[in-house]
Design a binder for these strands. Sequence first.
DNA 1: GAGTGGTCTAGACCACACG
DNA 2: GTGTGGTCTAGACCACTCC
Lengths: 273, 273
Amino acid sequence: MATDQSAPERTPAEQHGYIQIADDLRLQIQNGELAAGDELPSLSELVQKYGAGQQTARRAISVLQAQGLITSSQGKRPVVRGSRTRVTRSNRQHHLEKERIRLPEEERRVQGPLEDTTGISLHDATLNVTYREVVADESTPEFETGTPLLRREYETTGKRGNRIAWSVSWIPLAFISSNPDLLDSSNEPWPGSTQHQFSTVGIEIAEVVDTITARAPDTVEAARWGMSPGEPLLVGRDLMRDTQDRVVCVSLSQYPADSTQMEFVTPLPKADQ
Amino acid sequence: MATDQSAPERTPAEQHGYIQIADDLRLQIQNGELAAGDELPSLSELVQKYGAGQQTARRAISVLQAQGLITSSQGKRPVVRGSRTRVTRSNRQHHLEKERIRLPEEERRVQGPLEDTTGISLHDATLNVTYREVVADESTPEFETGTPLLRREYETTGKRGNRIAWSVSWIPLAFISSNPDLLDSSNEPWPGSTQHQFSTVGIEIAEVVDTITARAPDTVEAARWGMSPGEPLLVGRDLMRDTQDRVVCVSLSQYPADSTQMEFVTPLPKADQ
DNA sequence: GAGTGGTCTAGACCACACG
DNA sequence: GTGTGGTCTAGACCACTCC
């Protein structure tokens, strides 16, 4: 009976063979029986141990990979993934940038925005900036459709062309056209933050709203970031409001979740006595 | 030649058949040629169109599923997933809770923390609270190992037993043992927030730090939340500091990324003139 | 060269949806 | 009952790693 499905292993709780194998291995990983860096059993060992076909064992492995618990590559046994150290991206930065606005340019340059947000020094990375004039459409619902915008795209890539950081921002041209320097991408990296750029046209930022969510990357995105399967992409959409309560800048940024964490500090006013 | 791999379709750019099929369909989805709710071609149609084996076509479908672009179920063709509306979880809440502390109990009860954070009314949901006394270990690195803690677990489930919200928090017993009501889970849901609970023992919260990341759920988690494949889990770790700069509470919370977004508002101090 | 995972084909049975 | 996806087996070639 070549295709007899009623294998003796099957229990009502664990309906499918590949899930049973995957769960068994998963528990070993979560228990610590298999520690980070350890090798998993080879496919043929799994086939023998669980009495399953090779494709079933393969599928179990691919489930664990999708859950981000293991990595696997050709010619080598699958390996238990360790937790990577994450770069912290904090909203404390918003405050620091505001304080730095009034420093002279030399001091503002000391540590640029790239180091701040990525923790990576410029020696190993290339920043690529693209400015383009566009009009607001459904991708920028915060602005009325048709509003002329400056679209600035920042991509930081590592030595091997892998993406390290990426963001886009949109600013209504009307707010910044009074300072032509702001429209010229050859002035990047600007010594200071977006907040400082706004200060040169008399706009003061009063509030930043960050909205965070996450999603699975598609094939192209995963390849660009060098992400391993099972690793989500953190997606942030930020919005800056000025002291007149106008939305002056919207930005979209992405980070691989296994190497990034976002931190938000909320100071609470002291209770009045 | 049954196992001849050099199919005419293969180009150097698209090395593998299943990736080629998946990418082709992905582009159709991202272009809008296939809109949310539309059915994908059936497996046999894909087999015919791409001249591939059925398993290859299946694999392409499973890639799209892992990317969160489609849903698929037995007996029906795969369907393009629409973007779900997300519940916003905001740090504005931290401020609001602080203001509510001094209201009389009846007014505090008007809208409970559950509605605030989940947007779901209590009629459709069940809140399950578990209190336990534990000691600090490696899961609570913010406290010295061995410190006695109160561990409070909150699970909100929907009508069909599906998890809607979940969090755990740890509080050093020394801070709250002076008010025995705080140690008794039958007082839940407490009329007001954790901030209010601390106010009953003379502790005022000065700062909340939220740290956000994301990861793929494992089999059990995905089943508990009723998450579809390819949907990441947002994980938050929050920390409350009091006016004496002591860490008084640590909590861990999880949400399905496709139905949740986190919002953080950072007000910036006005520049002094 | 042996071990091992990655991809692919061919063929089968089962479970579910829909008319 | 027919269509359709979900699971499984058996067998094959390829690509990579390591000795």
